[in-house]
Design a protein around this nucleic acid. Sequence first.
DNA 1: GTATTATTTAATAAACCTATTAAATAGATT
DNA 2: AATCTATTTAATAGGTTTATTAAATAATAC
Lengths: 205, 205
Amino acid sequence: MSEEKTDMEFAILKAATKLFLEKGFKATSTTEIAKEVGCNQALVHYYYRTKDKLFDAIFEKKIMVFIGSLLKIGHEELSFEEKLTKKIESHFDVIKEDPRLPLFFFSEINSNPKRMESIKEIIGDLPQMVLAQMQKELDEEIAKGNVRQMTVHDLLMTIVSLNIIVFLAEPMFKTITKISDEDFSKLQERRKKENVEIILRSLKP
Amino acid sequence: MSEEKTDMEFAILKAATKLFLEKGFKATSTTEIAKEVGCNQALVHYYYRTKDKLFDAIFEKKIMVFIGSLLKIGHEELSFEEKLTKKIESHFDVIKEDPRLPLFFFSEINSNPKRMESIKEIIGDLPQMVLAQMQKELDEEIAKGNVRQMTVHDLLMTIVSLNIIVFLAEPMFKTITKISDEDFSKLQERRKKENVEIILRSLKP
DNA sequence: GTATTATTTAATAAACCTATTAAATAGATT
DNA sequence: AATCTATTTAATAGGTTTATTAAATAATAC
């Protein structure tokens, strides 16, 4: 009856999260998850019944993190430009915490678009409202002549696009260039600043 | 002894290409490929021996297309800005022809980085040389004061980043917004222009 | 027309996979 | 201690998968 997750239940969730993010739904077996945990394979099903349900629990959580970082509002005291900078950087940092997120996200939705439908129901129209609010703020800047004509749609697409590339390309990059983890981390931070620069320039009237 | 591909061999390659691009290596079975072609499953192995070899043949070809569109040079008579615009647009158009390419590319390298190693051997150091040439051209513009300090590395990353996003997000976008194929195509063309605009602005001193 | 070679099929081995079952163990309750 | 419940395991059914084999068919050569 308790909502508390037992240690085992949590360990399974954690191992599954790691493996699903690394290799995706299809390429990860419940046998493998059990092996990672060090338990019997049937236990995975005992706690989560099906591989699908286990995956969904993880997927929803991760989607929230990704979307949330973009739509979160705050820092009302700052200027438009400062707020935007903060948003871009915090979105970048969320992905840096969980670098597999973008590829995971796009891959799984591609291979099973139905998952998106259920996500849509869960998150409801909160995004719609936040988007409208963001568009309002943007329109104000446009009216003031600080920003060229632009939809929040396009702006978000540009932000996501620039912010995910280093992480998408990480495996490719590391195989080709044999770059060290430390240097790669420096590259990331440089790109974060570069992205802010590119986006702010792109908004100038 | 002949190098000619029989009709059947070609049909298998074509079906495999379609399915691998749609669903990836792991999620596509040789049984499914055979079904798509309308032949016996053993035939797939008769012509290509293993699923891996069949995949590799396709993967290499597609990588070439993707990389090639970026590194191709030409239009020597045009200005730097015009050449860059052409490059961005032609890269975008190559992806539009084959919209699954970016996700395919990043997914498969992520799930099996070893593939990248073999690709590296095949393409050799041609990219290295083209990159050096591009860097030279860029440096000239920087020296002339037309472009701010910038590496060709960063520039290419920005181009790829902006150019792939519409295609990566296509399945997600279409589920959420129920946008028509026609409107989506318009969106793409608008983004192509927007990308050129963003990149040219990002280079200004 | 028969022999020879190439293509295609049906059948199947061996390895996996998910999900379920019954039995074993551990923990809590009286 | 005995009973009841929750957790964990071993075993396995019923699928799928890749790859191989031998047999059947088609194509080519002599």
